[in-house]
Design a protein around this nucleic acid. Structure first.
Lengths: 229, 229
DNA sequence: ACTTCTACTTAACATTATTTAACTTAGGAA
DNA sequence: TTCCTAAGTTAAATAATGTTAAGTAGAAGT
C-alpha cells in the first residue's frame, strides 16, 4: 500500500519559529503550509485538503482556539495539535473541550512534535482498518469491533468467540464458510474438541438470531456453514 | 537521587552580556564557563565535561554553527542552545539541521533562557521523553504525563499504575492490548499475581470512565483488552 | 518514633466464557 | 433399511475475568 505525503496546516506568528518548523516538517515528509494568523489559515483551510492541524494558540487577528472551533465546523475529525506559550491549565482544558488531540508547551524539540504527529496519524489511520466491521443482519446491527448485536431496543453483548465466528460468517455471507477455515482462524487448531466447541457456538448464534425471520445459519453437511441473508 | 550542579559552556563575544549571563547562571545553580570565541570554546570543550552548550551564533574566529558542528563530532547528544542576533531565517534553519535543541533571539530575558535550559535538561535527564502524551476520551482528557483525567468540571488524579495502563490502552485504542505485553511493560513480570493486580486496575479504570457512554474497555477472552472509542 | 495516608498487592468470593461431556437428531452410503 | 459419522443441543466442568475488601509497605506528616 502506497503512503501519500500527509498535508499539514501550520499557524505560527513568530516567523523564525514558523519557517523553522515548516522546513523541518517538509524534510521529514510532511507537505506543510505555514500561515501567520488565524484568519488567513481559516480561508486557506477551506480551499485545501489537510490531514492535520498545528495551531499556535496566541496569534494576531484570530487565536488558535477560535480557529479550531471554526475548523471543527468544517471537519469534525481532523486532528489538531496546539502550541501553547507556557503551561496554561485552563486554556488547555478549554482547547481540549473543542476537540484538540494534543498540545505542546513551548519550548519543545522538533523531534517531539514530529513524534506526536506520527502518533496521532497512526492512531487516526489505524482506526479505519478495524472500523469497517459493522454488518446489518435484518433488523440487527452487528458491530464486530464492539462485539455487540443490537436492534432498535436492546444491545446484546457477544462474547469474543461468538463475535469472531459471526464476523467470519458475515464476511462470507451467502457463501460457504468452511469448517476447517473457521477453526484455524479462530481456534488455531482444528482438532475434534475445538470442532465440537464451534458447534456449540453455532447453536448460540442461532439463538441470538432466531427472532429475525429472513436470517439463518444453515449447515452444509461435511463442508461448513452458510449465513443466509 | 542527588542532583549535581549542571555544567554550562557559554560563548559570547559581547563581554558585558557574557559576564552578566555567567553571573546569573552561576547564581541559579549552573557552573558556567564563558569563552569569547569559538576556537577557544572548542579547545576547552575537549578538556572538560559539560552538560549543555549555549552558543552565540555570531562570534569572531569561529561562528556558533561551525562550532556546534564540530562539537557534535565529539558528543552527539549534548544539548545546544543558540543565541541569534535577529531573525536570520536561513541561519537558524541550518542550526537546527545539525541538531540544535533550542534558540533564543536577542534581546531575551535571562529568566527565559533559564526556563529553556531547565526544560531541555529535564527532557534529556528524564530519559525517554515519549512520556508526554495526551489523549481525548470522549469528554475526558487524559494526560499521561500529568497522570490526570479531566473533564470540563473536575480533574481526577490517577495513580501511576492507573495512568500507565490507561496510556497503553490509549496507544492501542481499538486494537487488542495483549495481557502479557501490558504485564511485561508495566509490571515487568507476568506472573499470576501481577495478572490479578492488572485485573483490579482494569476495574478501577472502568469506574473512572463509566460515565462516558461511547468509551469502554472490553475483554478479549484469553488475549487481553481493547479500548473502544 | 508514632500515626496517617496512599498506592499497590493479595485474598476471597462472584460472575462469565469456553471447553468437554453426554445424549440426541439428521444425512449419506452400503 | 442399517450403520456410521456429522451435527444439534443441553448441561456440567474448567478456566478466565470481575469485583470488593483486607493486608502491606513505604511516604509523608506530627
Amino acid at each position: 500500500m502506497m503512503e501519500k505525503r500527509p498535508r499539514v496546516i501550520l499557524t505560527e506568528d513568530d516567523e523564525n519559529l514558523g519557517l523553522l518548523l515548516r522546513e523541518y516538517l517538509i524534510a521529514k515528509g510532511y507537505d506543510t503550509d505555514l500561515f501567520p494568523d488565524g484568519e488567513i489559515a481559516y480561508k486557506e483551510f477551506q480551499n485545501n485538503q489537510y490531514d492535520i492541524c498545528i495551531f499556535d494558540v496566541m496569534m494576531p487577528k484570530k487565536d488558535g482556539f477560535t480557529l479550531a472551533k471554526e475548523i471543527r465546523m468544517l471537519n469534525a475529525e481532523i486532528p489538531i495539535i496546539f502550541l501553547t506559550a507556557k503551561s496554561m491549565k485552563d486554556d488547555v482544558i478549554e482547547g481540549f473541550k473543542i476537540g484538540a488531540d494534543d498540545y505542546m508547551t513551548k519550548p519543545f524539540s522538533m523531534e517531539e512534535l514530529l513524534f506526536r504527529i506520527e502518533a496521532i496519524l497512526r492512531r487516526v489511520n489505524g482506526e479505519s482498518e478495524n472500523s469497517q466491521a459493522v454488518f446489518k443482519l435484518g433488523r440487527f446491527i452487528f458491530d464486530a469491533r464492539k462485539q455487540t448485536l443490537s436492534d432498535a431496543n436492546i444491545q446484546t453483548k457477544l462474547t469474543t468467540k461468538e463475535s469472531d465466528l459471526l464476523k467470519l460468517l458475515c464476511v462470507n455471507a451467502n457463501k460457504i464458510l468452511e469448517r476447517n477455515f473457521a477453526l484455524k482462524t479462530i481456534w488455531v487448531d482444528d482438532n475434534y474438541f475445538n470442532a465440537r466447541s464451534m458447534d456449540v457456538y453455532i447453536t448460540k448464534l442461532r439463538k441470538h438470531l432466531k427472532s429475525e425471520e429472513g436470517i439463518e445459519i444453515i449447515n452444509i453437511h461435511g463442508k461448513g456453514y452458510k449465513l443466509i441473508l
